[in-house]
Design a protein around this nucleic acid. Sequence first.
DNA 1: AAGCAATTAATAACTATTTACATTTTAGAT
DNA 2: ATCTAAAATGTAAATAGTTATTAATTGCTT
Lengths: 136, 136
Amino acid sequence: MTKKVFQRNTKQREVILSVLREADCHPTADWIYQEVRKTMPNVSLGTIYRNLKALTEAGLALELSYGSTYSRFDGNPETHYHFVCEDCGKVVDLEIDVAKELEEKVAKGIGAKVHDHRLEFYGVCSECLQKESKVN
Amino acid sequence: MTKKVFQRNTKQREVILSVLREADCHPTADWIYQEVRKTMPNVSLGTIYRNLKALTEAGLALELSYGSTYSRFDGNPETHYHFVCEDCGKVVDLEIDVAKELEEKVAKGIGAKVHDHRLEFYGVCSECLQKESKVN
DNA sequence: AAGCAATTAATAACTATTTACATTTTAGAT
DNA sequence: ATCTAAAATGTAAATAGTTATTAATTGCTT
């Protein structure tokens, strides 16, 4: 609702954000935890979760939820679209033009204030398609 | 991956599906549980979850995940779009044309097989906007 | 009607996430 | 530099949604 503002800068948050930004996947909280531990061995998982939540609320990261398992996080807060492979679970960024104008259309349609949208495609990625064809 | 097939028809699943279809909201598992209990007092929550999962896998329902809390379910498996209110959490169906052709574009772009997509808008609904303006 | 396997109710277990609390750290004032 | 108050961390335990287990039940086929 109201945007999160950080009152202090911490080494932990700095590392978490850089790990998130440099990740070429869309990592889970636990993956980030393992990564951060490499340089900060006694960081706690609670700190990871606290900061991922705070970073999301601050608009510096996105939380992606697919199904009822864990969340994935995205260090690119700009609106962009994803493809999700239903076989291996991989999440890929797509290079499609973002249709910001749709938000205004929806806003007018239902009298709401719209400030973001997400578009996600589901299917089977090229790697998994290959594997399948080899098996059969 | 492979589509779920039901081997038996059960009263429980029948009631769950009809509750889901007649719901004017996008209910949580627990909401459905409470509803089903009105006519089947000793249905178990496990049965609700098991059937919601099975119905989703069978293509008769959708699982909607927002953030790291509970899932919501949708008894309309046809591709359609949603608006999510970030204040009250309400999920509303939108009457926007579905852009199925985008799926082919993505499929070509990354060499994947794409069989569905989801488009969700985030913001503040008209009711919450009104409440806010009264408070301030 | 009988038999078998799928499904259920009940309950325990699991796992991702959150939180309480004592301690440490940060940033600004002195 | 030092001090101070608030913020953030680490540790550990709690929470909550979901899934697994097991014995009992119930659809469905013959």
